[in-house]
């Protein structure tokens, strides 16, 4: 078996063998369910067969949920010293990082899969825009993968899980809100660059059902960059 998959399987199992996996999954579903169907500008108030509210709110909760999943991945291994056991076995630094990433990403995918009944419900309620919804889910997965790689990177920096969580949260907030916010207050090329780097710029166009290569490249390079930095960090052990 490929070492990447061995790690991913172990980590995924450990989420479901403890309370953490179920806890994070249910908290996410409770909040996203409430905000999609019950609170604020929900589906019934809009009287439209769309999942726009769901796709607007999901990143806000993933913002917290993904760092909670990723924070332990490398930080705990460092703290307990088990990283020494892992890396002296037949597995490379890269395989370890990718394995950890995969475990968290699959966990997020499973969580998001629990929202598929929303889609079925909307289709029953009216004429749904299938393209937009499928695009929305693809966008959500890409955004989750980007958050996950940020989380893995934050977890690789030290041996403290709380620090890893907060750091991942801060980086996520920067990409999700601050870059766009600052970008809008500058005109010209500087503002453009900041806007291009911000997640909503790309997420919203995918959510409308428009799959553009430049958005895919954006998310792809972000995932690659943070995983690469994490690998660099754990390779460098003196």
């Amino acid at each position: 078996m490929n070492p990447i998959w061995v790690i991913a399987k172990k980590e995924l199992n450990s989420y479901f063998n403890s309370l953490i996996g179920y806890l994070i999954l249910s908290i996410f579903l409770i909040f996203i369910g409430a905000f999609t169907w019950l609170i604020g500008n929900d589906v019934f108030i809009r009287q439209q067969a769309t999942l726009d509210e769901f796709f607007n709110w999901a990143p806000m909760f993933l913002l917290f949920m993904i760092p909670a999943l990723t924070m332990k991945q490398l930080a705990e291994e460092k703290k307990s010293g088990t990283i020494e056991l892992l890396l002296t076995k037949n597995i490379s630094n890269r395989q370890l990082v990718i394995g950890k990433f995969l475990a968290c990403f699959l966990m997020v995918c499973i969580t998001i899969a629990f929202t598929l009944p929303y889609y079925i419900t909307i289709v029953q309620l009216g004429n749904a825009d299938h393209g937009a919804i499928i695009g929305g889910y693809i966008g959500l997965l890409l955004l989750s993968a980007a958050f996950t790689s940020i989380g893995i990177f934050a977890s690789s920096l030290g041996d403290n899980q709380i620090v890893a969580f907060l750091l991942a949260l801060v980086i996520n907030v920067i990409f999700l809100f601050i870059l766009g916010f600052v970008g809008n207050s500058f005109s010209g090329w500087f503002g453009d660059i900041l806007n291009t780097l911000s997640i909503p710029e790309h997420y919203s166009s995918i959510s409308r059902g428009v799959l553009d290569t430049k958005d895919l490249i954006y998310f792809g390079s972000m995932i690659f960059l943070f995983l690469f930095l994490a690998e660099l960090k754990i390779s460098n052990r003196g």
Binding site: P3, S80, G81, T82, L85, L86
Partner: peptide
């Protein structure tokens, strides 16, 4: 690394893993 068996100082282990699962995991990794 596949020719080396290593017991690090302080013997770090995954405390939440059952013994058999842990050995299975190590075997798979090696």
């Amino acid at each position: 690394s596949q020719h080396i068996g290593y017991l690090p100082e302080h013997n770090p282990l995954y405390h939440d893993m059952p013994v058999i699962d842990y050995l299975e995991f190590c075997a798979a990794l090696q």
